[in-house]
Design a protein around this nucleic acid. Structure first.
Lengths: 345, 345
DNA sequence: CCCGGCATCCAAACCGCTTTGGATTTGCTC
DNA sequence: GAGCAAATCCAAAGCGGTTTGGATGCCGGG
């Protein structure tokens, strides 16, 4: 455990060439078992660890994955992002990769990607929060930087690798559950609809309504950053209107909590007077579990998505010829305490 | 904007030596203005960007800061951590540093630090969530890796650099506010008290009580991971007991939301029947602002703390001889809607 | 006994940049 | 016009690994 031993010194001590020592440590075959043992022993004794910069330079691979996040991300600079990162990070460290995160000014995102590529800072990146009019994938292809999308890029599903949950289907099922419970007037508190995932969720919602011959009422459909007050304020406004909804379909637990607060403040009871279904990203600090979860929800672990997205990316880096491949995660529909039959009018 | 031009090629094209080109680009004085201009122009034209691995190897500085986070962090694997990271990240990119995050198995944390040091992966690290019996600072000192603590290490305040808020004072003031409002029975929902910050908050709470000749009642003091259900369940239990508290002092907005939910479920009104003061880390997705914030709170921006901690660390890396220095942030006490005079009994 | 072949190991080139230690030129002073 | 410092620029030596292209020694086969 001494400090700063490098290859040269280690090989000197062993009376061997750097070549042999390097090979012994990296598991190449042209080294005798006995020599390999000696090398390993001495390396351990001297606390040798290869300098990563030197190795990266020599191999030409940076052994790092980049995540660039704009400074003022809306939806993203939220816990969901961290949870994803945590999942991806597990995969990276398991494979000896580093995770580098660049927080950049909003208008420097493209620059950040270009730098990653030109200065060889990372071997690949992950695209977060694809928008409805996404373009980052073109840039990345142009600069030849491998990537995987968390979410899907509309129109480029075939040609890109991605990991996403089935947003449309999840919200369709959730809506059906509410309809089955007799709810006719269902509010939608969606995320920002310039984001692909929010758009898909909305389609799922509308499809379910349409299947029963119902038309969506834009008067009780909102789209915004999914904060707590967003949920509370909008729910409050709707509940106090002349024709209040009897159920809410919400895109995030955080906002759902706000909705529940509004319901309480109106003297109503969640799950009885008013129902809520929310999407649950299975965030660690916002558990919605227990025998009967607080919220009825569509659930899909973003952390898991992070792990898998990272694996996909590493696969593509290992074999650049590989065809794009994707993972479609299905959200569970879990019945909790926040839903009940529509109240008699 | 072509690809892969390196120094050698660039200097060939310019009919200059690599030395001169390097110097011109890095702003050294021994280059004529005219030459510098030519170099800059050609570099731009060919889209030259120095390979960061090579540069790191040559300079011996990795230009990166490490953050190691255990896989199953409790308190930390929460939005607070991300917000801090975001702040720190801004500072890093402003100074040309990369941020590398290692998510490691809980029992490999020490290993992670040793690797960062021995393989020269980062020039420094930030210690997150110091415990009451912290020891990471010793390890880091031993392996000679510069660091800054987010929080404080009890007993090592002098010898380490840190950025922390005034936890004790904040909770003392909050408690005083409640006492001034006539509350006699105040519950404390604290974070995990093996963490330094939680311990300090508790002391502040107890000090304020003691100053008025009151003894803390451990029957209404809890310490746990600051989740939403934690707040709700514990508040519920206390409110339903024979001698319920009239006010709650809570360590996190997330849990405070849970407390509010419990209050609602008991048919009581927050800010009237029961008061809440929470600490507010100013998380972007949990805004507690507006003319009159929802929660009365002690507020201190962790994002800001992240920025400053990063600056401190970079300063120390730039000048290793520098004495440890620290930043003590003061939390504001902000009155919102969740507090009111103690109800008559 | 010679030779091809395998098992081992090594010297040196290379990755792309920074930096040291001059060499050459230019500009002034006296 | 000599002398000297300042201004410019360059060749080459690292930084610490990986990898190519042999050497060397030892073996059994012919």
């Amino acid at each position: 455990m001494s400090k700063g031993v490098n290859l040269k010194e280690l090989s000197n001590r062993l009376q061997l060439s750097q070549t042999t020592v390097s090979r012994a440590l990296n598991g190449y075959p042209e080294v005798s078992a006995e020599t390999r043992r000696r090398v390993a022993e001495m390396a351990e004794k001297l606390g040798y660890a290869p300098n990563s910069q030197a190795r990266r330079l020599a191999t030409g691979r940076s052994m790092a994955i980049g995540h660039v996040i704009p400074r003022s991300i809306h939806e993203m600079m939220n816990p969901i992002f961290l949870e994803f990162i945590a999942g991806a990070g597990e995969t990276y460290s398991k494979h000896g990769y580093d995770m580098i995160i660049s927080v950049v000014e909003d208008d420097h995102e493209e620059d950040a990607y270009r730098q990653i590529a030109s200065r060889k800072k990372a071997d690949g990146v992950i695209i977060h929060g694809p928008a409805a009019d996404e373009s980052r994938h073109r840039l990345l292809r142009e600069i030849n930087l491998p990537f995987v999308v968390h979410g899907r890029i509309p129109g480029a599903e075939r040609e890109t690798s991605w990991v996403d949950m089935n947003n449309r289907r999840a919200f369709e099922r959730a809506t059906n559950l509410l309809l089955d419970l007799g709810h006719k007037r269902i509010a939608l508190l969606n995320g920002l609809e310039h984001m692909d995932f929010a758009r898909r969720r909305r389609v799922g919602f509308e499809d379910a309504l349409a299947a029963r011959g119902l038309a969506p009422d834009t008067g009780i459909m909102r789209s915004s950053d999914m904060t707590e007050p967003y949920g509370c304020d909008n729910a409050m406004e709707m509940l106090r209107s002349g024709d209040p909804p009897t159920a809410f379909l919400v895109s995030s637990m955080i906002s759902a909590i706000g909705v529940a607060r509004a319901i309480g403040q109106c003297g109503l009871e969640t799950g009885k007077d008013v129902s809520i279904i929310t999407h649950d990203d299975a965030l660690s600090f916002l558990p919605n579990s227990g025998e009967v979860p607080i919220f009825t929800c569509t659930r899909s672990s973003v952390r898991y998505a992070g792990q898998r997205a990272a694996e996909l990316l590493l696969d593509h880096i290992a074999d650049p010829e590989r065809e794009p491949s994707s993972l479609h995660l299905d959200a569970e529909l879990i019945v909790g305490q926040s839903t009940g039959p529509a109240p008699d009018r």
